[in-house]
Amino acid sequence: MTIDDTQSAEQQLFNTGTLVPFRVLDTQTEIAPDQENLFVRVELMLEDDQEEADPEELVEWGAFGFLFALAALSFHDARPRGTSAIEFHSADLFTVADCLQALSFGRYGLRIETDYLRGRSMKTAVTIQPDGRVTLTTWGRGKSALHWLDRLQGKRRLQAVSTGPAAS
């Protein structure tokens, strides 16, 4: 993969993350005990239907970018909750340093987990296993995770269309 020196590390990681092909295997949503928040868990598989690429190869070149892209989308959509509004700045961006602080590697694979970050209630965890299996979990974020996956696959969100008379 060629590195573009004109782009920031964040841009390069995000670009890589958007190139990683995946398929949604299962989605589970659960209402929290407070009856207001949702817990969402999505099981994915990194795979390419077109070229029969080995999922392990996709993990090798795309894992960091994929994790970064999901975390950046989570950060962008996250809003303050309670007293965290004091730290919230709407123009703030998710950085490589943020990613590295949330990154870990364990027996289940490479993982990024965030709770609150600079006033944003991210509440997101993503784990990529060496065999290409991915688990994306959010809590208290509604169904935002499903929208991030749609965005990564290039799907457009549906928008309401006026049903009133057309203007001449």
Rank of each mutant, 00 (worst) to 15 (best):
I3Q: 10
D98C: 03
T95N: 03
A69D: 04
V20S: 05
V126D: 00
F105M: 10
L44M: 11
V42K: 03
L146M: 15
E30M: 09
E47N: 03
V134R: 10
V96D: 03
L44K: 04
D49T: 09
D54E: 06
D115C: 02
Q129I: 00
T124D: 07
T6M: 07
V20I: 15
A85F: 06
W148D: 13
G106P: 06
V134N: 08
L117A: 08
A9L: 06
W148K: 06
N37C: 05
T135Q: 15
A72L: 07
A85L: 05
M1C: 06
D49M: 08
L158M: 07
L117Q: 14
K123I: 00
R120P: 09
D77Y: 09
D115I: 01
Y108R: 12
T135E: 13
Q159A: 10
A32M: 11
R23Y: 05
E52W: 10
A9D: 14
A53N: 09
W148E: 11
S84L: 07
L25Y: 03
I31G: 00
P33L: 15
A78P: 05
S144W: 02
R111A: 03
P130T: 03
Y116G: 00
T95R: 12
W139P: 00
Q101G: 04
D150H: 11
S168I: 00
P55V: 01
Q159Y: 04
T138M: 06
F75I: 04
F94S: 06
D98K: 04
T114L: 15
Q12L: 13
S144Q: 12
L158V: 08
R79I: 01
T135S: 14
I128M: 03
L158Q: 11
I112K: 01
T83R: 12
Q35S: 14
L158R: 09
A72K: 08
L158T: 02
N37E: 07
R41V: 03
D26L: 05
V20Q: 02
A166F: 11
D98I: 02
S90D: 12
S74Q: 13
R107T: 08
H76Q: 14
P165Q: 05
I128L: 14
Q7R: 12
I86T: 08
A91T: 08
A32F: 06
A71R: 04
L67Q: 11
N15R: 13
G140P: 04
T114A: 15
E51V: 07
P80D: 02
G164A: 14
P55S: 15
T135L: 14
T138P: 00
E10Y: 09
L146V: 05
A166E: 15
R107D: 12
G154E: 13
E52T: 06
E47Q: 14
T6A: 11
R120C: 07
R157I: 05
C99R: 01
L149G: 06
T124N: 12
D92S: 15
P80C: 02
A63F: 05
T135F: 03
L146W: 02
S90H: 09
I112V: 15
P165S: 10
A53L: 10
Q11N: 07
A91S: 14
Y116H: 12
Q35K: 13
G132Y: 04
R111L: 02
T6C: 02
L70N: 09
